[in-house]
Amino acid sequence: MEFRQLQYFLMLCKELHFSEAAYKLGISQPTLSQQIRVLEDEVGVPLFDRVGKKTVKTEAGVILERYALEVVQQLENAKQAISDLTDLNAGHLRVAVLPSDLDYRLTSLLIDFHKEFPNTKVQVIPSIDIVNKVLDNEVDIGVGLAIKPDSRLNRIPFYTETYSLYVHKEHELAEQDIISPTDLSNIPLVMYPKGFYGRELIDTWCEEQEVSIEAIMETGSATSLFQLVKEGIGATIQPSQLIESFQSLGIRAIPIKGSPIRDLEIFYRNDKYLSLAAKTFMKRLEVFFHNTL
């Protein structure tokens, strides 16, 4: 059984279509079909069933896929470990984060990290599907809201933060020291669209508080939301620490009594080798957020 055959096999498992899998592998369909037949002859059972135009994995195919993924991951781990020794921390670090407010806050961290690891290419990928990106090996590290325990993942809680109501300094509520949940019902708000983690957390909290809020405008950008607040279009509910980034716009953060709270975690696959750069990034992330308290 050759490693190349496992790569062909795994691509077919992913696509479940011979033409698509062959195209993504850069080989012809007959070549892919021939290599799968060789693999099936070696294991002694069919790995796929061809039902009309559909291709489905057999029970044996499901088993082989699980172990093949482990083989590929272990080989990638070996490459990463050797790279740490020989390439002066060159490499590629991919981090998935919550869109908008969280990726916005990482800029200064990324600048400092680059000074220590100038040869490491870093990709920060905003996503609302962080867990699956980590599990599918599309990224190395996920940074987002706390998730349920998963035997496939290592999880590192690193920060808990409250939410505040953000208003322009000329807003009628700007001088209040705190605001109650019921008061939010009467305030025009600009918010993230439904489907964003931050919006879902706030909507769930509102249901628990038996409060109904109205969004008069929605946008997926933290910067645009705060610009709308600056222009007096409406107020917004955002993590309290964001005031440090937007105070210059003449905006005030008012604490909310019993406000929504979000717990943030770093998570990564427990079978994945983490490079020195990745470990350093995670440690820097914890320190960075704790210093904002």
Rank of each mutant, 00 (worst) to 15 (best):
E172V: 14
Q176A: 09
E116H: 02
E214P: 00
T223N: 09
Q123W: 09
L98G: 09
P46R: 08
T182L: 14
E210M: 12
S221T: 01
I261N: 05
L293M: 11
M217K: 07
T55G: 10
G234F: 04
L16V: 04
I187F: 05
R4D: 11
K283P: 02
G26P: 10
D140M: 05
N270F: 08
I254H: 01
E170K: 11
K283A: 13
F117W: 04
D84R: 12
I243N: 02
E20W: 04
C206V: 00
F117V: 10
L32C: 06
Q34E: 14
R262Q: 11
S185G: 03
I111E: 08
P157H: 10
M282K: 03
I178M: 13
E161Q: 12
Y197R: 13
L276A: 10
T58P: 02
R50D: 10
L264A: 08
I111N: 07
P181A: 14
K79N: 11
L135G: 00
M1V: 07
I27Y: 07
F158S: 04
S240G: 10
A215M: 10
D263L: 05
K53A: 06
L64W: 02
V45H: 13
Q29S: 14
N270M: 11
E218K: 10
D140Q: 10
A90V: 04
R94T: 09
S180H: 13
S212I: 09
V45N: 10
P157G: 07
E231K: 11
I179K: 00
Q73D: 12
A215F: 06
S100F: 01
L69P: 00
A90L: 13
A146E: 13
A146T: 04
D49L: 11
E70K: 12
E231N: 12
N270L: 12
P193W: 07
V190P: 08
A21G: 03
D150Y: 06
D129A: 15
D101M: 03
D41M: 09
L264Q: 06
F267D: 01
T223F: 06
T120F: 04
V190I: 15
A81G: 09
R199I: 00
D41N: 15
